[in-house]
Design a protein around this nucleic acid. Structure first.
Lengths: 125, 125
DNA sequence: TAACTGTATCATCTAGATTAGTACAGTTGT
DNA sequence: ACAACTGTACTAATCTAGATGATACAGTTA
């Protein structure tokens, strides 16, 4: 279900949170769909259940999922999180833009980088 | 000289490295200009000299400065680091773009965010 | 009843960051 | 020559976040 390779750098619980966020935003998981159990994910990724628990707690705090004790965790309704998560994404991207400008890149160059990424992803090479 | 407020999140030595990188790239520090002594910066920012030492070592490894024992540390020639640092910046920004796209933002939105930042910074309000 | 669920709490371990202290060799200015 | 400075190196101690391990509880599901 959650195929992913854990990399160094960011904490595990953040990487997992990022991955599940993507699945929900991309529509690969839909409203009220049940997420794997905490212990299940922990087993698949060979990490500690406590680490997964932290991820689920964060996702719930951001409105992406809701958890019912003794039942399970489920994808929340899109209206519950969409604006908030989009705001988070835009703010994070804005920060990256400001940093890039400080480091001497021009607005034109940033636009070009975006377009290049778009093109490369569709050309599949 | 290095007015900056240390924030949580990133390590101190990285924040300082980031700050000095900006000063050099923006031309606020020019070729062969002497940087403050390790102990001097440590005093100003109320941090440990070892922390500053680590920052200087990283800056030298990236080609932004050169250090002469018993003399001081100086801003390197622009040709020594420009391509490398620009590459770093572009790669970091590319990563931010990919992440934003994964999180559902469109290329059009990303372009708009860039333009908004450019406009707001020049309008000063 | 047995197996599962989210949740909570405890202790432990580790790596990274930071501080602290000291030392050395070379320079700079007086 | 001298004192004050420079980058550099090293060791040790401390602190914190991240992650693990283990256990427990109350509620559900089949």
């Amino acid at each position: 279900m959650f195929s992913m390779r854990l990399q160094g750098g960011a904490p595990i619980y953040e990487q997992l949170e990022q991955r599940i966020t993507e699945l929900i935003l991309n529509g690969q998981m839909t409203e009220n769909e049940k997420l794997p159990a905490v212990r299940e994910i922990a087993k698949q990724l060979s990490i500690n259940p406590n680490t997964v628990q932290k991820t689920y707690a964060n996702l719930e705090a951001r409105g992406l999922i809701y958890s019912i004790p003794a039942k399970g965790s489920y994808v929340a309704a899109r209206g519950e999180y969409l604006d908030k998560v989009r705001g988070e994404s835009m703010e994070a991207f804005s920060e990256a833009v400001r940093k890039a400008l400080k480091q001497g890149l021009t607005a034109k160059e940033l636009h070009e980088i975006i377009d290049n990424i778009i093109n490369n992803n569709s050309k599949e090479e």
